[in-house]
């Protein structure tokens, strides 16, 4: 069988009709089909209107710490410190402390905690190195923020958690973490969660889930690699022993995305 000449292949790639014989040969001949495929790819790429609005939705943005790593590695100015992908991904307070309750420090560059060995945010502790700013931030935060409470609890091993869980990675994730339930003076229970890195494509949400996965309670959004969440009074942890951190897309759907990053079961 005679192969299609290059000009015919080009015209076919442009969508011209060259008759049944050419079409039949193209279907039957792997060599010609390969050449055609390459030309067709160029036509599709160069021709307008074949993919109008090329599904930005199909693209997945990088994690919220990537820009901080770039910013730090290149020593860029504070003017461009904010994640260009927008604040909606890194809902404040990004790094004021490991809790969601602490107000953000009034500094331009949030301190990206070491996500893992790969990121190396060299200037990560920048705001810590500026005592004036740090003191101002501390004063503004009225000293007794939940973040400081957390720090105190972290450094005071005397606090015995009611229950705790080792968090193991789920599916293709590799993050690990710990969760524990503490009781504060007034009987309020708090779930503290800490992961070694934020692997969420969207944002992290913390859940308590029944053993058979049939029921679940959302405790809130975790914007960094640690968070502290009030456990609703009356919630029986024995009925909701599974701590789950999910990866939630920004789609406005309040349900669990069914993409879990880490999971563990509370035990006292």
């Amino acid at each position: 069988m005679q192969h299609l000449d290059p000009e015919s292949l080009s015209l076919l790639a442009l969508g011209e009709e060259l008759g049944d014989d050419a079409a039949a040969h193209l279907r039957a001949c792997p060599d010609c089909a390969e050449d055609y495929a390459g030309l067709r790819r160029a036509v599709v790429a160069a021709k307008p209107g074949m993919d109008a609005g090329l599904e930005a939705a199909a693209l997945e943005p990088p994690g919220p710490r990537v820009w901080a790593g770039i910013h730090s590695a290149l020593g860029l100015s504070d003017d461009v410190a904010a994640d260009p992908l927008g604040p909606s991904r890194t809902q404040a307070p990004p790094a004021a402390g490991p809790t969601t309750a602490a107000p953000p420090p009034p500094v331009p560059l949030p301190a990206p905690e070491e996500r893992d060995g790969r990121n190396r945010p060299r200037g990560g502790a920048g705001w810590m190195r500026r005592p004036g700013v740090w003191l101002a931030a501390a004063a503004a935060a009225a000293l007794l923020t939940a973040g400081i409470v957390w720090s105190a609890q972290q450094s005071r091993p005397a606090v015995t958690p009611l229950a705790q869980a080792e968090l193991a990675p789920v599916d293709r994730h590799s993050a690990t973490g710990v969760a524990r339930v503490l009781e504060t003076g007034d009987g309020q229970r708090t779930l503290e969660v800490r992961v070694d890195k934020n692997e969420a494509r969207g944002y992290q949400e913390v859940w308590l889930i029944a053993p058979d996965l049939s029921r679940l309670v959302s405790l809130g959004v975790m914007t960094s690699d640690a968070g502290s969440f009030a456990v609703p009074a009356g919630l029986d942890l024995a009925k909701y022993p599974i701590v789950d951190v999910s990866d939630e897309p920004m789609d406005g759907n309040p349900a669990h995305s069914s993409v879990s990053i880490v999971r563990g079961t509370l035990a006292s």
């Binding site: 930005a56 199909a58 693209l59 997945e60 943005p61 990088p62 990537v66 820009w67 770039i70 860029l76 100015s77 003017d79 461009v80 260009p84 992908l85 927008g86």
Partner: peptide
């Protein structure tokens, strides 16, 4: 630097994907 930030805003999702 703002051009780099704008490039990141527009193209980091594609790069990442």
């Amino acid at each position: 630097e703002t051009a780099l930030a704008e490039a990141y805003r527009q193209f980091s999702p594609l790069v990442h994907t």
